[in-house]
Design a protein around this nucleic acid. Structure first.
Ligand SMILES: [Zn+2]
Ligand SMILES: [Zn+2]
Ligand SMILES: [Zn+2]
Ligand SMILES: [Zn+2]
Lengths: 133, 133
DNA sequence: AATGTAATGTTATATCATAACGTTTTCAAA
DNA sequence: TTTGAAAACGTTATGATATAACATTACATT
């Protein structure tokens, strides 16, 4: 799966996401690609779907937005967790094998065999909460 | 906060959610309350917002749906996690103090002071995956 | 060249959620 | 008990997010 050649629209959408630190909505991505010839939502949503399949981007379910993966070279990860600043929108993608295991156990205790998890922690980053000097 | 008297619309919406095991969309709730006189989305969304504030229901961000709280008597909880079966839509609400702490640490390690977290584990419940005899 | 498959372009529509505004209800202070 | 502010309500309109459906194009395999 690793060395999939991206199509034109997939490359365009990925480039937009990679050029931003903050998450973007699908329609915001579309706006930024009108010059490149994109006109309609399906063109973006289809690219987003594939990029998510390839593990190159992630959807933040709690804010209906998309971000480029910050761990391109980690391979496909089971669980991806995000720390999201509600003030500046900075996003950190957290990968932690021990946490994956914890989440898996939590699911099994609840009688569920987990396939995919959404973990999105909202709060204030150090910069926004004045914790940085 | 505990003994808030609910308004008519809030009671109606809560009753619908409590009468279902599975999460419901806002419009599905509205459909079920036309006989009770509700006509328009804001009537449901306003009730949902208050019920969430009161901790009586939760929103499942990953499926744009709402469920009644399964821990009415646990008091207001910091972190609520859900195990969601993608086949039968059964939802388990998980409360685990140790996990709360883990999540908090994870956030702080990522430079974030956490305020609210979304944890939604998708998979197959034992019944749907044939693990029950 | 013929064929099949994936990607694309386009239109329309479904689904989820809120803005805005006027009216009614509630309820405590005067 | 009046009355006034706040909350809840009803209603219309619109914004925001996402997909269905279908015709066309690109492109690799034969
Ligand atoms: Zn990633
Ligand atoms: Zn910040
Ligand atoms: Zn709860
Ligand atoms: Zn199930």
């Amino acid at each position: 799966m690793s060395e999939t050649k991206l199509t034109k629209n997939q490359s365009l959408v990925l480039a937009v996401l990679e050029s931003h630190q903050s998450p973007l909505s699908a329609y915001s991505i579309l706006d930024q690609l009108t010059d490149a010839g994109l006109r309609a939502p399906p063109q973006v949503y289809r690219a987003l779907e594939k990029l998510i399949d390839y593990g190159l981007i992630h959807k933040l379910e709690s804010i209906n937005s998309y971000v480029a993966c910050q761990h391109r070279h980690c391979g496909s990860h089971q669980v991806t967790s995000f720390a999201i600043c509600d003030s500046c929108e900075h996003v950190s993608e957290i990968i932690n094998a021990q946490f994956d295991k914890t989440l898996h156990e939590l699911a099994e205790n609840a009688g569920l065999t987990p396939k995919h998890s959404t973990v999105e922690i909202h709060g204030l980053c150090n910069a926004c909460s004045g914790l940085e000097h």
